[in-house]
């Protein structure tokens, strides 16, 4: 489970894995330069996209009235996203957004889960570029829908001046609303996903490195106990990471739906 490449080369001291475990050069080093873009995170994104396409194809491509096999799984997944995310957050017209929300949830879920898939073992979303692109998609959609449904002035009015406050307070509170909605919301949206995946991957790498170092590389009677703890913690943290990865994919989709719902129905 532990990968020797996590350890810094040489040295007799245990060294905890640092930021270098996120640096991935071209997959085929020394290969042709036109293949330099193909790094491990990029490969994981391609695999996750293919997995999602195949899953959706098998589940919904030839839908039967009485579902069998993969279609059963697909329908449960669809109902989960529709009843837990789309309808509560957007309302009656939430079903129209199911294509977007279903894809978002499962694509991000697959990218997150690649952190515990053997051999891959890197959540692609621990590179902030990917969450930023997802959050940017949601942000642009949210801005477009808001201005389309509320008008340009109406959007800023609804956002910055929530009804029911004494007038002098608006001067104080409007800048907070503006900064929060326009600048910080996409920021927290992407950073929340990125930071969870980043920290989780570091933790897993740390405990598995401890286990590898003290049980395999430098096995001593005194260090074996530490190694066993590291080994057990690796197993526990793997289970915990699966939970966090699923939760963060869900939260990202939930927030995307919440922003879209807020754009369509500003009164909420």
């Amino acid at each position: 489970m532990s990968a020797p490449h996590l350890l810094a080369a040489g040295g007799d001291e245990f060294e905890a894995p640092g930021l270098h475990i996120f640096d991935w050069g071209p997959l085929f080093s020394g290969g042709p330069s036109w293949l330099d873009w193909l790094t491990k995170p990029v490969l994981i994104v391609i695999l996750a996209a293919l997995a999602l396409i195949v899953f959706a194809w098998r589940a919904f491509g030839n839908a039967q009235l009485v579902p069998r096999g993969v279609q059963n799984v697909g329908e449960v997944a669809y109902l989960f996203v529709r009843d837990q995310v789309a309808r509560p957050m957007i309302g009656k017209d939430g079903d129209k957004w199911m294509g977007f929300l279903f894809t978002t949830f499962f694509f991000i879920l697959f990218l997150n889960l690649s952190g515990v898939v053997p051999v891959l073992q890197l959540p692609a979303t621990s590179h902030i570029a990917f969450p930023i692109v997802f959050a940017a998609f949601v942000y642009v959609t949210m801005l477009f829908l808001s201005i389309k449904h509320q008008g340009f002035i109406g959007y800023f009015k609804n956002m910055m001046f929530p009804p029911g406050l004494p007038k002098p307070l608006y001067v104080i509170l409007a800048p907070i609303e503006l900064l929060s909605n326009i600048i910080l919301r996409p920021f927290t949206h992407s950073v929340r996903l990125f930071a969870n995946m980043f920290a989780g991957h570091l933790l897993l790498a740390f405990f598995s490195t401890v286990a590898w170092w003290f049980l395999v590389e430098k096995l001593t009677p005194a260090g074996a106990g530490v190694g066993v703890v590291g080994f057990l913690m690796t197993i526990i943290m793997t289970g915990f990471e699966i939970f966090v990865q699923s939760l963060q994919a869900f939260i990202f989709t939930l927030l995307a739906a919440s922003y879209i719902g807020g754009a369509l129905h500003p009164e909420h």
């Binding site: 907070i176 609303e177 900064l179 929060s180 909605n181 600048i183 910080l184 919301r185 920021f187 927290t188 929340r192 939260i251 939930l254 927030l255 919440s258």
Partner: peptide, 12 residues
């Protein structure tokens, strides 16, 4: 889920 961005915004 809107608390973090509001709090950051207010402090900023």
């Amino acid at each position: 889920w809107s608390i973090p961005s509001y709090v950051l915004s207010g402090m900023a």
